Simulated assay, not measured.
Amino acid sequence: MVFSVAPDLILSNGPGTCIPLCFAGFIMRVLGLKKVQQVYVESICRVKHLSVSGSIMYRFADHVIVQWPSLQKLYPKTEYLGKLC
């Protein structure tokens, strides 16, 4: 699906089902087919540690957004934008 649509942006918010779609976007970039921007928004309920999906996307996403300043301190590549309600 990702290869046929060729999106400019993949915006995901946490469930593990987002990983295959994000991986497909990453493969498109590696193969030079298209630069797909990936933004991952961690769940507001994650206060002390990233979720499993967040830990994976921390390594591959262009932007990882957290909703608690304590997470941004633990994971310096994240971006704290406040609570996104």
Rank of each mutant, 00 (worst) to 15 (best):
L50M: 09
I65H: 06
P15I: 06
L21P: 01
I65D: 12
K48T: 13
G16H: 07
G25D: 15
K34I: 00
C45D: 11
L74K: 15
E42T: 03
P69N: 03
V47R: 08
F26P: 02
E42D: 13
V52L: 15
I19C: 02
I44C: 00
I56V: 15
Y75G: 00
C22P: 02
V52W: 10
G25E: 15
E79P: 01
Q38L: 11
Y58M: 08
L31W: 06
V36C: 02
C18T: 15
G14F: 02
V39Q: 08
E79W: 12
S51T: 12
K35W: 13
V64K: 05
L33K: 14
V36Y: 10
L31F: 07
M28I: 07
A24V: 11
F23H: 04
W68S: 10
V41Q: 08
K48P: 00
K73Y: 04
R29C: 03
L31T: 05
L21H: 01
I56L: 15
S53T: 06
P76S: 14
E42H: 02
G54M: 06
G54N: 09
L21R: 00
K35Y: 14
L21Y: 13
V47H: 12
K34G: 00
S55T: 09
E42F: 05
P20F: 10
F26S: 03
P76F: 13
P69D: 15
P20V: 06
T78P: 04
G32W: 13
G54F: 07
Y75R: 05
E79S: 09
M28E: 09
Q72P: 01
F23N: 13
Y80P: 02
C22I: 05
S53A: 14
V66K: 07
G25N: 07
Y75D: 03
G25V: 05
F26K: 08
Y58P: 07
L21V: 14
M28R: 12
W68K: 05
G14S: 03
I56M: 14
V36P: 01
K34M: 00
P69Q: 05
A24D: 14
F26H: 13
Y40F: 15
Y75T: 02
K35R: 14
W68Q: 01
G16P: 10
S55C: 06
T78V: 09
I65S: 01
L33N: 06
P20T: 08
Q38Y: 03
S51N: 13
P69S: 12
V64I: 11
C22E: 12
Q38C: 01
D62C: 03
V66W: 09
D62Y: 11
V52C: 04
F60V: 15
T17D: 14
L71G: 05
V64M: 10
R59S: 07
Y75E: 01
K77S: 10
A61Y: 10
G25C: 13
K77H: 08
V30A: 11
S43G: 10
I27W: 09
G14A: 04
D62N: 13
P15M: 08
R46G: 00
L71W: 09
P76Q: 04
V66C: 14
M28L: 15
Q67I: 14
E79Y: 09
L71H: 12
G32R: 05
I44P: 01
Q38H: 12
Q72A: 09
G14C: 04
V64E: 09
I44T: 09
S70K: 11
G54Q: 12
